[in-house]
């Protein structure tokens, strides 16, 4: 195991109404086995022991599945490896390196403090239609509706989205199309999702626009940073479902 000495430039911002800026820190003796967030824990311990305020950042599972973490590291959402920030390890960096750490930047994700943003807009998109309307107890026997193996697998590929928001942070237009498309594609692949297909696509896409996310213009940056490898083809599916909803509803 070796250790790194690092220079860190970290975005600090008091709250959503105050201006923020990059602040320099030095952190020595970082184990290459540490995860990126454990490196920030170490810095926070150093700050708190000295009576200074720690840097606020979000995390929970720390194993790449809850989607709570997310930082822009040296200009790239989730950093240099295709994974979540919590699963990025310090062995990817070299001794003496300078790291610039910033929050997701997008209008619909206002910064709450330091590196923490508000992603409530994602929940509102789901509330607009990202579900199957089946009340508890009203479900038929699980085997009553067969689902071909490849369809289940296709649904799972899209359902794997963790809602971290890296796609939005990476997109020059701050579009939420990958996120929204993943949910639409997941449910469109399954017979259970069929009855509400049109409504779902129309309502979710409208909500996405209403929340202030931009349009997709095929940059592909979202797919490049997605830690769950959600393919950009879900956006094509979303557009198709949306068009279909227009032609079938009138």
């Amino acid at each position: 195991m070796s250790e790194l000495n690092l220079k860190l430039r970290i975005w600090r911002q008091k709250d959503s109404n105050s201006p923020g800026g990059l602040v320099d820190y030095t952190l020595n003796g970082v184990s290459t086995h540490s995860s990126f967030l454990e490196m920030l824990d170490q810095l926070n311990r150093q700050l708190i022991d000295a009576g200074e305020e720690g840097i606020e950042f979000d995390s929970d599972c720390r194993e790449g599945i809850c989607g709570m973490c997310g930082l822009v590291i040296n200009g790239v959402a989730h950093g240099p490896v295709n994974t979540t920030t919590c699963q990025l390890h310090m062995r990817e960096f070299v001794d003496g390196e300078t790291l610039t750490i910033e929050p997701w930047r997008a209008g619909p994700f206002p910064v709450l403090k330091d590196l923490v943003v508000d992603r409530g807009s994602f929940d509102r998109i789901i509330a607009a239609g990202g579900y199957v309307s089946v009340a508890t107890g009203a479900a038929p026997d699980a085997n009553a509706i067969p689902v071909p193996k490849d369809k289940a697998s296709e649904a799972m590929d899209s359902a794997a989205c963790i809602g971290c928001g890296a796609c939005v942070a990476a997109c020059p237009n701050a579009s939420a199309s990958l996120f929204t498309g993943a949910k639409i594609a997941h449910l469109a692949a399954l017979p259970q999702g069929e009855p509400e297909r049109g409504r779902r696509a129309a309502n979710m896409v409208n909500k996405m626009d209403e929340e202030g996310f931009g349009n997709c213009s095929n940059h592909g940056e979202c797919e490049a940073v997605c830690p769950k490898e959600i393919p950009i083809s879900v956006i094509a599916k979303m557009k198709r479902e949306w068009l279909r909803s227009i032609f079938t509803s009138t």
């Binding site: 579900y131 199957v132 089946v134 508890t136 107890g137 009203a138 479900a139 038929p140 026997d141 699980a142 085997n143 509706i145 067969p146 689902v147 071909p148 193996k149 289940a152 697998s153 649904a155 799972m156 359902a159 997941h186 449910l187 399954l190 259970q192 999702g193």
Partner: peptide, 20 residues
């Protein structure tokens, strides 16, 4: 009942080729 409920919600459980 849990499995029925989850399948109806669109939880993509692993399936056999026959769809079950």
């Amino acid at each position: 009942n849990i499995i029925d409920q989850a399948a109806a919600q669109g939880v993509p459980f692993a399936r056999e080729y026959g769809g079950s």
